[in-house]
Design a protein around this nucleic acid. Structure first.
Lengths: 185, 185
DNA sequence: CACGAAACAAAATTATCATTCGGTTTAGTG
DNA sequence: CACTAAACCGAATGATAATTTTGTTTCGTG
């Protein structure tokens, strides 16, 4: 694998378990198997590595969320699939989840950086917007629906990761049902 | 105000806008109007200050959540009041909200510290548990209900703070309704 | 008043880290 | 095969910060 990618992934790994300021560049270099100087060959500074990680994950979100969503089904069915898409992405990419939870927030990620990455979310926004217009879901503000839904998936993922619940398929069903009931008409 | 309290509050203020590792003790000392040495007279180290802030806020939670909850009303009404209790606490104490969102997480707050503070949540847990037993709300795992509800309040608060929504009383009503619909039978 | 303990101060210590710099190696090209 | 530009290296630099140490002040009590 090329060094740049290795630096990014090592930083991601270390940062989610130690925090940004607690992971020295020297450690990143060592664990990535490169010299410190090499890191600065590829990146302007530490901050930029974090920024690239953030951007990478946002892009993932945009793609993963809309995967395998059948256009000819009810919105409830589509919702269920999108919900699971995100949940399964988190389960399969715990580093991404933890990064977004603990690192991808101010003051590390500034609102400016966040703004740069909203592009990745236009599709999902449009999907929910038409659902509101078609009265498939409650007529409340789009931002509220999105934030609540996202929050629900995160809640379920948290319980799973913290091992506070096993999240059997029954419990996942419960969570999705609860989530859907909160937005359905 | 006594110096210990001043140190805690200054640390809280600086930490939510700069992050833990980005706020030097020297700055805390300066803005609190004490000498660096004085801080170490009251606290073993930086970590302990953070820990005391966390504990302080957890205690607030336990008290605030259960305030003015009428025992003789339906659980729906009670839920509404608890929900607003927390929401209003966040609005009135933005530092506490931001601390819990950005600082009160691993690896800064370890699971050990978190465990020490679960005492503050026994009342609220019991309240929801009896609601489940009395079939006032869905029969799903207590942890799921709590995490989802907490997540909903946080979602609403986030939208307000990030100024993405004005959170008029209508919108708050929407949010509470959505939240309630997700747990009601 | 004196005297001991707690409160307070800040300089000194020790450590750590992000970044730079001077240089070497590698790989592609005419 | 030169030659060059990019890739790469890691010691040195320059800051900064957490904590310790040493000493001074305050204050309650016998």
């Amino acid at each position: 694998m090329d060094k740049k990618q290795r630096i990014i992934l090592t930083m991601l790994e270390l940062v989610v378990e130690q925090g940004v300021h607690a992971t020295p560049m020297s450690q990143v270099a060592k664990e990535a198997g490169v010299a410190v100087g090499t890191i600065y060959h590829y990146f302007k500074n530490k901050e930029q590595i974090i920024e690239e990680i953030y951007s990478m994950i946002c892009q993932d979100f945009g793609i993963v969320l809309m995967a395998n969503v059948p256009e000819d089904e009810s919105f409830e069915k589509q919702y269920r699939i999108m919900w699971l898409n995100l949940y399964n992405y988190f389960l399969g990419n715990p580093l991404a989840f933890k990064f977004m939870e603990f690192v991808g927030v101010p003051p590390i990620i500034t609102s400016e950086i966040r703004l740069k990455n909203v592009v990745h979310f236009v599709n999902i926004k449009n999907k929910f917007l038409t659902a509101i217009l078609k009265k498939d879901i409650r007529d409340v503000h789009l931002r509220l629906v999105l934030q609540m839904t996202m929050g629900n998936v995160i809640s379920a993922t948290r319980l799973k990761f913290k091992k506070e619940l096993p999240m059997s398929s029954n419990q996942i069903d419960d969570a999705i049902k609860m989530s859907w009931d909160s937005i359905k008409v």
